[in-house]
Design a binder for these strands. Structure first.
Length: 183
DNA sequence: TGCACGATGAAC
DNA sequence: TTCATCGTGCAC
């Protein structure tokens, strides 16, 4: 499998969010290689995007989002679940793509439909925050098998407080996939 | 130093 | 619709 290059992430966030669909998220922990096929993503376009953590500027938590592209931004939500993001665009631009659901491919136990569940199933936690996705133990790759699928656009989940930004169609998923969190 | 609040998920 | 559970961010 071809690991996605830095240039893949160093582009428009919406484009990256769409093109991440169908790619394989790989996490190697110990001797176990867990793989999930990305079927649902959301784009967060800080700092103007009121739904993005980076809307409040550079803070201890969001500094990863301001960093160079191709790194993981992992944070704890509601005190019990982790959410996995991919940092996009050049260093200094605080944008990222939230991975909302994956389809189990290898060594994945439990459900993966939802950002908290997919992190639990792939053993992703705060230790991977800031991790370079061009490393050998945590990365995203192109399976190379053109499958061909339609992409559905919807408003993002759980950001009703974001005013007009809550209505933007920044959530993308593979049409018909049974592994999407909220079809 | 204290406290309100989530880019959630599951139960009721 | 309600609750579990806790780090972050910002008000005192």
């Amino acid at each position: 499998m071809q690991k996605l290059p830095r240039t893949f992430y160093d582009r428009d966030t919406i484009l990256v969010a769409r093109e991440l669909l169908g790619k394989y998220l790989v996490h190697v922990s110990g001797s176990v290689e867990r793989i999930g096929r990305i079927v649902e993503t959301e784009a967060y376009l800080g700092p103007h995007d009121r739904a993005a953590h980076s809307a409040r500027g550079l803070t201890e938590r969001t500094k990863i989002m301001f960093g160079p592209p191709g790194h993981a931004y992992v944070y704890l939500i509601y005190g019990m679940y982790y959410c996995m993001n991919v940092v996009t665009q050049p260093e200094g631009v605080a944008a990222a793509v939230l991975l909302r659901a994956v389809e189990p491919v290898q060594s994945v136990e439990g459900r993966t439909q939802g950002p908290g569940l997919l992190c639990r199933a792939l053993h992703i936690d705060q230790r991977l925050n800031g991790h370079d996705l061009l490393s050998d133990d945590f990365y995203i790759a192109d399976p190379g098998r053109p499958t061909g699928f339609a992409i559905v656009k919807r408003p993002r989940i759980g950001v009703d407080y974001a005013g007009p930004w809550a209505k933007r169609l920044l959530r993308f998923y593979i049409k018909g996939s049974p592994f999407v969190s909220k079809p």
